[in-house]
Amino acid sequence: MAQPGTGEGPAVAELAPWPRRPARLAHAVIEALTDRIVAGHFPPGSALPVEAELCETFGVSRTTVREAVKALETKGLVHARQGSGTTVTVQEEWNLLDPVVLAATFQHDDELVVLDQLVGVRSALESQMAAQAAAVGSDKDLRAAQAMLSRLDRETSTPLRFIESDVSFHAAVMHASGNRLGQSIVRIVHAQARTTELYNGTPDEASCRTANAEHRRIVERLLARDSEGAAQAMSAHIEEAWRRRRSPQPRR
């Protein structure tokens, strides 16, 4: 993610007008401003352009701009104060579970810092849910996770299809845990991460076969009702799969 510039004051970039007028105006303004804030073009402590300038830049009404700024505030990106303008907040205040903020964050995560953090969160939550699934999951739910293995075996030669079924496999294990909050958190962050090539890598048949061998160890531990073993197998799979996809050098 881009860092604020150095110097006597924050360097603020100018916004470029749209070549075409988007259909969903407020949402388009929100996405554009979120992207510029996350990219560091409007560093923490800097002020957004005044309302009239935003109206002119995006070709929208004051009502649309006010709606967009209000949305940015609910996302934790800005503080809007009457008479003192709209100020960008520090990164710690940003709501990274908001889909728009999260998508922009991943888009500008050139050194994979946030994606590394995502994998850590997934490893912690999904290993816990694998342990819960082994302990309390119904036989029917565990058989559903087991059934995914055959489907994944058939799809190792079609990596794009495999990675879609891989998501379904993990969803089946999480469902078996009964942990609805954990499922929601993982679903939000993983869905956004999968929209970026930085996270997806370039899957091939060999990596798919390796991943499914790891899936099989998870299922074996689940069926054995081995909570600790299921947790360890899930954590190892998530972290190793990321290590295989991750570039050995930071992206520039």
Rank of each mutant, 00 (worst) to 15 (best):
T156L: 06
T156I: 14
S157Q: 06
S157P: 02
S157D: 13
S157C: 01
T158H: 08
T158F: 02
P159A: 04
L160I: 05
L160Y: 06
L160Q: 12
L160R: 12
R161C: 00
R161I: 12
R161L: 11
R161W: 04
R161Y: 07
F162K: 10
F162W: 10
I163F: 01
I163L: 02
I163M: 10
I163R: 04
I163K: 04
E164N: 08
S165Y: 03
V167K: 14
V167L: 03
S168P: 00
S168L: 11
S168N: 08
S168H: 13
F169W: 11
F169H: 00
H170S: 04
H170E: 12
H170M: 08
H170D: 15
A171Q: 14
A171W: 10
A172I: 09
A172G: 06
A172D: 04
A172P: 05
A172E: 10
V173M: 09
V173H: 04
V173F: 03
M174K: 06
H175C: 02
H175T: 07
H175F: 05
A176V: 09
A176I: 15
A176H: 11
A176L: 13
S177L: 15
G178T: 02
G178H: 03
G178L: 01
G178W: 13
N179A: 15
N179Y: 13
N179G: 05
N179L: 06
L181R: 02
L181S: 00
G182P: 08
Q183P: 01
Q183N: 04
Q183D: 01
Q183C: 03
Q183K: 04
S184I: 07
S184R: 09
S184M: 06
I185L: 15
I185G: 05
I185A: 15
V186D: 12
V186K: 12
R187K: 09
R187P: 01
R187M: 03
I188S: 14
I188Q: 03
V189Q: 07
V189N: 12
V189H: 07
V189P: 13
H190N: 13
H190E: 03
A191V: 04
Q192Y: 02
Q192S: 15
Q192E: 15
Q192H: 11
A193C: 10
A193W: 06
A193V: 00
R194W: 00
R194Q: 11
R194P: 06
R194D: 09
T195S: 12
T195V: 01
T196E: 07
T196F: 01
E197Y: 05
E197R: 13
